[in-house]
Nucleic acid binder design. Structure first.
Lengths: 145, 145
DNA sequence: TTTCGTGCAAATGGTTTGCAGACGC
DNA sequence: GCGTCTGCAAACCATTTGCACGAAA
């Protein structure tokens, strides 16, 4: 599949793809590297980065940011449109599906003549269970004070 | 206004606020620092960063990312809901207004019980004039070949 | 005077890059 | 064998932090 674009199917590249496939969810480069070293101890972090960029350019992988901290990049196999919500209390990442973003894109494309090629959309807050627990805690405090 | 929260109104803090107000659009920390040094040559970049974080925590300033490169943070005075679109050809940043994001938030809050506290939304692509020029260029190429 | 802020310089940490050797094709 | 890839280690660079001094309240 890659060879058609003049790229070499090296074991390192296949390994990175394999790991992303097996895990099935977003991983950061270091995590991919650590997992990869189980199979190829000489795998270097630089190669993981280079491979991820290459796979991204070829639309096999997409790079994402989570939550407010955009210092670290995450990667996942490209799949149908979706976004991410990170709970700032328990850290859970929830996959979000909504047609509103695409709707916004189409409306803005029509209104302003924009052509969209890429977007970074990520949400942060409290998941339902954390939100409940916080409300309970606050309720008690309010009651006491 | 800040003093009410137990914070000191130092000249450096006022200066950073002043610059953001005067410029009226997003700036990165280094840019703020450079402008600030015209008024206070001893101003340090570290103080600019510390001030921006403090202002952000107090909801006077909001931190943003633009385009695909999230290595650099930008800051602007907090104002009504809006998002940004960056043209990847001319670099222009266009301010976007759409109710769809808020709509998505509300729908997701109701459906999944999520509580939203923060989001990073930014778009990238071609502005209308760049999109036209690209189409022309491609048209010519197609014509020639 | 006491605490909070600042400037300086060094540290941080994820990501990128130069280079020489290794390997896919 | 040629041209691409890789591993290594060093470089990058925006941002953060430790520390001693300076200045608000």
């Amino acid at each position: 599949m890659l060879r058609q674009r003049g790229l070499r199917a090296t074991p390192q590249r296949l390994l990175v793809l394999q790991i992303l496939e097996d895990v099935g969810e977003h991983l950061d480069a270091e995590n991919i590297w650590l997992r990869g070293k189980d199979y190829d101890p000489s795998l270097s972090l630089a190669t993981v980065y280079r491979t991820l960029h290459l796979l991204e350019e070829n639309d096999l992988v997409s790079q994402r940011y989570f939550s407010r901290d955009h210092k670290k990049e995450y990667y996942e196999l490209q799949k149908e449109e979706h976004y991410h919500f990170t709970c700032q209390r328990c850290g859970k990442v929830i996959e979000i599906h909504t047609p509103r973003i695409e709707q916004a894109r189409q409306e803005l494309a029509k209104e302003l003549g924009l052509v969209f090629t890429h977007a970074c959309i990520c949400f942060e807050g409290y998941c339902s269970s954390c939100a409940q627990e916080i409300q309970h805690t606050q309720g008690e405090h309010t009651h006491v004070s």
